[in-house]
C-alpha cells in the first residue's frame, strides 16, 4: 500500500473508531436487532464518511450521522414490514404506553418507534429525531435541512395520526 493509501486507511479507521459507536448505538436502537445493526453501521459509515471528514466540529458530524442513519434504518424497517405478516391487533401499541399528552409529547420511546413505523414516510424522520432523539424542533429542522414550520406541521400530523391509531386500537 502506498504512503497515501496507508494515510487514508488510518484516517478511515480513526473516524470509524470515533463515530462508530454513535452510529452503531443508533442503528441498534432503531432496528432492535444486533446483526442488522452491525450491517447498518458499516453501510451508514461509508455513506456518512465524506460528511464527517469535512465537518467543522463533532456536532455537525453527528447531525449527518443522525440524518443518514435515520433514513437508512427507516428504509430497512419499511423493507422488513413489507415482507412481514400483517400485525395482529394484540401486537398494536397499548394506549397507556403511547399516550400523547396535552403538549403533544409521546412519553415512551419504544411506543413512539412502533407508531413511527406505521406513519407515512415523510413524517418518520422528523418523528424519530424529535421523539426518540429528543432534539428540539429547531435542531430537527437544521438536521434535515427543512424549515421549523415544516417540522411543526409534520409533528402535528404525526400526533393526530397517532391519537387516531391509539384510540382505534383501544376500541
Amino acid at each position: 500500500m502506498s504512503e497515501s493509501g496507508v494515510h487514508t486507511s488510518e484516517r478511515v479507521s480513526t473516524l470509524y473508531r470515533k463515530f462508530g459507536t454513535a452510529i452503531y448505538s443508533r442503528c441498534r436502537r432503531l432496528l432492535k436487532d444486533d446483526a442488522l445493526a452491525e450491517d447498518a453501521t458499516q453501510e451508514v459509515f461509508v455513506r456518512v464518511l465524506r460528511h464527517i471528514q469535512s465537518a467543522p466540529d463533532d456536532a455537525t458530524a453527528l447531525a449527518w450521522i443522525y440524518r443518514i442513519s435515520t433514513n437508512y434504518c427507516l428504509n430497512q424497517i419499511r423493507d422488513r414490514s413489507r415482507q412481514a405478516e400483517p400485525t395482529a391487533p394484540d401486537e398494536m401499541p397499548e394506549g397507556d404506553g403511547g399516550e400523547v399528552n396535552s403538549e403533544g409529547e409521546m412519553m415512551d420511546r419504544n411506543t413512539a418507534m412502533k407508531l413511527i413505523a406505521r406513519a407515512p414516510e415523510k413524517l418518520q424522520e422528523v418523528a424519530v429525531l424529535y421523539y426518540v432523539d429528543g432534539l428540539e424542533q429547531e435542531q430537527v429542522a437544521k438536521t434535515l435541512g427543512i424549515s421549523r414550520r415544516t417540522v411543526i406541521n409534520r409533528l402535528q400530523e404525526f400526533v393526530e395520526r397517532s391519537r387516531k391509531f391509539i384510540s382505534r386500537d383501544e376500541v
Binding site: S9, E38, V46, L49
Partner: peptide
C-alpha cells in the same frame, strides 16, 4: 450508550473495519 461503545469497540469494530476499508477504497 456506554454498553454499546464497549460492544462496538470489542467486537463490531474489529469485525467490520476490513469491510468498511474495502468499501471506501
Amino acid at each position: 450508550l456506554n454498553e454499546d461503545k464497549q460492544r462496538f469497540e470489542q467486537f463490531v469494530f474489529a469485525r467490520t473495519l476490513p469491510k468498511v476499508e474495502a468499501r471506501v477504497a
